[in-house]
Nucleic acid binder design. Structure first.
Lengths: 232, 232
DNA sequence: ATCATCCTTATGTCTAGACATAATAACTTT
DNA sequence: AAAGTTATTATGTCTAGACATAAGGATGAT
């Protein structure tokens, strides 16, 4: 059945539709690229691209010689954007304000050394910052920056723009590990975020590396009632 | 400088290295595909694939006629796997146990209708479940399933396997919206998760659609101290 | 039966060339 | 100067064919 639709997107969507409709149920084997190319009346490379995208999405599994199989237990994965605070505040149509609360150079404390893996005597820049949305507390940020990794940070003016934005401009491509949890507001957080002590708060921690060396560790605590949103 | 390295992966990695080393700084324009193909001694299609992958990663922006530009503000995105509860428990080397607490068929309450968009008189299956790790509370799950979307759910045996796993086998490919937040334990949660009332708890809510129709809404509350982890 | 070896096969990648398309630049007309 | 038209250009996609490679299957030796 040689159809005239040719583009790899059509093929990708058609194949996806057949999988969703259980024409090709989970676990089943798809026709070979050559057979599909025949059916769709196109070159094998076109089918290859279509199936490769589905494989990247985790919809199918592909193995040489074995063929292409509908993934029975698709690895559901969500992609969420690591938004800069300013962005997410402005996206809510709120006025963003930033304030540097504290700035000091210290030797990395043991817990930090264990966490990010810097040398015993490593000097770090320790910062406390507040981010506001429409003058209401939005996020309290506590950050440690490995001075050895970004020496320029010593001279950076962090009173106007947050350290996150400064770091992004300096070290745009990095790896990170991220954890989220719920914590109870301690005295400090209660003051900065204007909530009762013990209030449940959403907290994210992120460790960032650039080419293997740790750059920064940040603990971000959000105002009460904050929801992190993502789609997939 | 016609090199002998040819594979698109080599090219992708080389280009990435040049971007990281600021040989091509953020905002700058890369050579055209033809020029790069010359430099690397390969076909343009090979360069195209390399650059396309970098564009997919958000490292570069590509526009017809304009060319390929290093992304100044790369959209940082984290990918986290939507693990089935059983998986994440077993990944911790803990014994997984599941228990169905409550099961009832009800008419969708107004807040749920507003949330997921089902008809006024839609019948939904309402479930409460507990997930344990080594016999300690791990997650309390409250779920509503749109019966019209998956009629078979009425006859499904959900006493042994959780509704999540059952649904995954029935509706493997779906879209979802996901939010995370911190809440204080109310009376019910305090009992089920064995924490004091008011304890800060990590909560995720997920709405799932299949081909446009809402399938299920689930509210998952984790034990105290739970960390959601992800890397990028 | 067990193991090593060769053959077959489906995917993985590359090439050279072609046409399509979006967006800028250059030119023309008003 | 403003607006509309045309050329140019870099990416986007496709093709037909080629060789590479992983892995399953068959074969044969132990």
């Amino acid at each position: 059945m040689t159809q005239k639709k040719s583009s790899f997107q059509d093929i990708r969507d058609t194949v996806m539709a057949r999988i969703q409709s259980r024409h090709w149920p989970p676990g089943s084997l798809l026709p070979t690229e050559v057979e599909l190319a025949e059916e769709f009346g196109c070159a094998r490379a076109t089918v290859n691209r279509a199936l490769r995208e589905l494989a990247d999405q985790g919809v199918v599994d592909r193995k040489r010689k074995s063929g292409t199989r509908v993934n029975a237990a698709p690895v559901k994965q969500a992609v969420f954007e690591i938004a800069v605070v300013r962005q997410s505040v402005e996206d809510m149509n709120a006025a963003y304000r930033y304030s540097l609360v504290k700035r000091e150079v210290i030797t990395a404390p043991p817990w930090l050394r264990a966490r990010v893996g810097v040398k015993d005597d490593a000097q770090v820049l320790h910062l406390n910052c507040m981010h506001f949305a429409d003058n209401r507390p939005f996020q309290f940020e506590e950050r440690w920056i490995n001075i050895a990794a970004v020496p320029d940070v010593i001279d950076a003016d962090l009173s106007e723009t947050g350290p996150n934005e400064w770091l992004l401009s300096q070290v745009p491509f990095s790896n990170a590990e991220l954890t989220s949890t719920a914590i109870a507001a301690d005295e400090t957080l209660s003051e900065f975020l204007d909530v009762p002590q013990g209030a449940p708060l959403f907290q994210m921690e992120r460790t960032t590396w650039f080419q293997g060396t740790p750059v920064t560790f940040v603990r971000m605590t959000f105002h009460q009632g904050y929801h992190m949103r993502t789609r997939y």
